[in-house]
């Protein structure tokens, strides 16, 4: 089917509101801190995990509210999300950096900006490499003038992945992926006619997103083994799902 002009518009309508997400994350962190004694502060890594956890809740809610996703049974929804949750987190982070991030800074979901140099000076080797790789990808996306329509298409392409094992309704997933792929191609051709291969350049970023997401999962899993990862969280459950 040829995507209708408002197909992309419908996808955009399902996007979370950044301000609402920011409020939700800040409220959750304040509640967490209020439950602790004044001198028992959350360490930086735990705060980052809480932010990621709340963002992940938001992404699951986003997927769940999508009409395309609703067409799948819950078992298929679970398998797809279990497979791509960390890619969705990375894409969400990348889009936030392209939209709001200042040069040399990382823009957090709480609205705060942290100098990349500050993180690098305190982080270990793995996290430093992750930050550097991600910032490089942000630069590439900025150079490509990555916009919100393209971002939402990439999220759907990552979510509706027919290659995920044990997907029952593979054909449905394939059809949605093809439809979104076509919408992305037409959008890049219409909105950036001068950039002949923007569509191809955007798709080339997906393996990089996948690679970074796998490194993020390994990093989080290592920290989990050290007992650093807050338990009873969606983040921990999704991590276990993949490593069990």
């Amino acid at each position: 089917t040829i995507p209708s002009p408002n197909f992309l518009h419908q996808l955009l309508e399902g996007e979370q509101d950044e301000g609402q997400l920011r409020t939700k994350v800040l409220t959750s962190l304040q509640k967490e801190q209020a439950n602790r004694g004044k001198h028992d502060c959350l360490n930086t890594f735990s705060i980052m995990c809480k932010m990621a956890d709340q963002t992940l809740f938001g992404l699951v809610e986003w997927a769940r509210n999508s009409n395309l996703f609703k067409e799948l049974k819950v078992d298929d929804q679970m398998v797809l999300l279990q497979s791509c949750w960390s890619e969705l987190l990375v894409l969400d982070h990348l889009c936030r950096q392209v939209t709001y991030g200042k040069e040399g800074c990382i823009y957090l979901v709480t609205g705060q900006q942290i100098e990349v140099s500050t993180i690098i000076s305190q982080a270990g080797m793995t996290l430093s490499s992750l930050v550097t790789r991600t910032q490089d990808l942000v630069s590439k996306l900025k150079a490509l003038q990555f916009d919100r329509q393209e971002f939402v298409c990439l999220k759907y392409l990552v979510l509706f992945n027919p290659d995920v094992k044990s997907v029952q309704n593979r054909r449905q997933v394939e059809q949605t992926q093809e439809r979104v792929n076509r919408a992305l191609m037409e959008h890049t051709q219409q909105s950036h006619p001068g950039h002949s291969d923007k569509f191809g350049q955007l798709l080339l970023r997906l393996p990089e997103v996948r690679s970074i997401s796998l490194q993020v999962e390994d990093y989080l899993y290592q920290r989990h083994l050290l007992g650093d990862l807050p338990c009873n969280s969606l983040l921990a459950e999704m991590l276990h799902g993949k490593h069990s």
Partner: peptide, 18 residues
């Protein structure tokens, strides 16, 4: 595995009308 994904299943399966 199913037990591992209890929270995800709950989030996807919960009834909004409640």
């Amino acid at each position: 595995k199913k037990k591992d994904n209890a929270l995800l299943r709950y989030l996807l399966d919960k009834d909004d009308t409640v």
